[in-house]
């Protein structure tokens, strides 16, 4: 791996992670009252792990993201979503008909509660799947190979790119 970023970058990244995750949960929870929801919240939650991996290197980031757990969370979110739909079927309603949870005769406020819990449930499912999927995508795509696809190979290219860039901007007279 390339050397990890400076102490300052690592410190700020570590301190920022809980706030990012808290914000993700806020986005999830306030999807009913403002813009947001499980999808955006899940992406923001996943980005906190990406930040860790960028600041501390792939291996250190991976330690915070148990492979098995996230492999399980991705389908679990889908199952939670579909499960809520099937529960509605079981209690006599249509697929994903949240009002079925409280029955026909319930008053207005109770029906709102049923919608509320149904929505929170499916948004949680969306968030689980999106978070786990994005983390899987990032960590699998950026996995440093034995050949050094992410780390070692890039340094030489970086140097070349730097030279190319400076030559282009300085308008080298012999070009």
């Amino acid at each position: 791996m390339r050397e990890t970023p400076s102490l300052i970058v690592r410190y700020v990244a570590r301190r920022a992670v809980p706030f990012i995750q808290l914000y993700a949960l806020y986005v999830l929870g306030h999807g009913e009252d403002g813009p947001g929801g499980g999808f955006q919240g899940g992406v923001i939650f996943a980005s906190s792990f990406v930040l860790l991996a960028l600041a501390y290197g792939w291996g250190q980031g991976r330690k915070h993201v148990p492979e098995k757990l996230f492999d399980l969370l991705a389908p679990a979110g889908c199952l939670l979503y579909a499960g809520i739909g099937f529960v509605a079927l079981l209690v006599g309603g249509a697929f994903l008909q949240y009002e079925a949870f409280v029955g026909e005769g319930a008053d207005h406020a109770t029906k709102h509660h049923a919608h509320h819990f149904g929505l929170i449930g499916i948004e949680l499912g969306v968030m689980l799947t999106v978070t786990a999927s994005m983390v899987i995508l990032f960590f699998e795509m950026s996995r440093p190979d034995e050949e050094g696809a992410f780390g070692d190979g890039a340094s030489q290219e970086d140097v070349e790119a730097l030279h190319d860039g400076s030559a282009a901007t300085e308008e080298a007279p012999d070009a």
């Binding site: 999807g31 009913e32 009252d33 403002g34 813009p35 929801g37 709102h112 919608h115 509320h116 929505l119």
Partner: peptide, 9 residues
């Protein structure tokens, strides 16, 4: 019918 203030949700 549904409740949330955000209709998109």
């Amino acid at each position: 019918e549904v409740g949330p203030a955000n209709m998109v949700t």
